[in-house]
């Protein structure tokens, strides 16, 4: 038990470092795809360090509260993941963070963050059912919602749940704030929305949100890794490939509207999960 706790604590402490590196590599690959040179791999760390050193500025105190609750909830959900607890519980903890992010955006009277908050809610409406379905599918294959049960499998989950992995890919794209689903905020400033939910956050508070996002990236990719839990190399290759596809999709897709997102994500997600479950039962 103590060993598991220490492992989870260390993993949680390292998660933002890993998340920042992933984000740096992401920016390098994106630049490469756009025939640019791109920033140093450590650039995300420079950005966050700089933000931490800026003078705090907020529109009201609730925003600040919400930013830090979001950060805490993201960290806790990563901790619970590496403690190998319940997938559904991790999902609910992740929701705490997402809800507080939205509440923080809605707490400011800025029109940009208000619209961003509403769109973020629609994004949640799109990915939450999918994530629950993914977790249920995993649980129905392994017999338990516990992550440890996934590691007890002798065959990678991907063999039995290929379509569910695609569904997870949809949720991942939304959660990573990649096109075509970067409708509430993203890493670039969009004309009509500035940066949506992030518009009113600045300095250290923006840094807190960025770190929270790194936690979420690590968590989402770790969930992807569960689909090849039988070997470490398998996990790494699967995650690397998935992430590369995400970057590719981000670069070739235009940003879409929320209506299109709800229709396509829920429609495709539901159909694919039902097909996969039918196939699983037929076997």
């Amino acid at each position: 038990m103590i060993g598991k706790l220490v492992f989870a604590l260390v993993a949680t402490a390292l998660a933002p470092v890993l998340g920042g590196l992933i984000s740096g590599v992401d920016r390098r690959i994106t630049a490469w795809l756009q025939s640019r040179y791109g920033p140093p791999v450590l650039q995300p760390f420079y950005d966050v360090l700089k933000l931490l050193g800026k003078r705090p500025m907020a529109t009201n105190i609730w925003q600040v509260l919400c930013a830090y609750v979001y950060l805490s909830a993201a960290a806790v959900s990563v901790f619970l993941f590496f403690l190998q607890t319940d997938l559904l519980l991790i999902f609910f903890t992740l929701t705490v963070g997402a809800v507080f992010l939205v509440m923080g955006a809605l707490a400011s009277p800025s029109p940009y963050s208000q619209i961003g908050g509403q769109r973020e809610l629609l994004q949640m409406l799109a990915y939450e059912p999918l994530l629950i379905l993914v977790f249920v599918a995993i649980a129905m294959t392994t017999g338990s919602f516990k992550i440890s049960a996934v590691f007890a499998m002798d065959k990678p989950l991907l063999y039995s749940l290929p379509l569910i992995f695609v569904v997870l890919g949809y949720a991942l794209t939304i959660k990573l704030r990649k096109s075509p689903f970067d409708i509430s905020t993203c890493h670039h400033a969009h004309q009509e929305l500035v940066r949506g939910v992030l518009t009113e956050y600045s300095g250290p508070y923006l840094a807190a949100l960025e770190i929270a996002h790194w936690f979420e990236v690590v968590l989402m990719l770790s969930i992807c890794a569960l689909f090849w839990a039988t070997s470490v190399w398998g996990m790494l290759i699967l995650v690397a490939l998935t992430y590369f596809v995400e970057i590719l999709v981000d670069n070739v897709m235009a940003r879409m509207t929320w209506k299109w997102m709800l229709r396509s994500v829920l429609g495709v997600g539901l159909v694919l999960s039902v097909l996969n479950m039918l196939w699983l039962y037929a076997n």
């Binding site: 529109t59 009201n60 105190i61 609730w62 919400c66 929701t95 809800v99 939205v102 509440m103 955006a105 809605l106 707490a107 400011s108 009277p109 208000q114 908050g117 509403q118 809610l121 629609l122 949640m124 409406l125 939450e128 059912p129 629950i132």
Partner: peptide, 20 residues
């Protein structure tokens, strides 16, 4: 449960939106 989160979260957000 996704729909539930949607209508609660925006209500709570609206209650919070206040000037300092």
């Amino acid at each position: 449960s996704a729909l539930t989160v949607l209508f609660w979260a925006r209500w709570a957000g609206a209650l919070l939106s206040a000037p300092f």
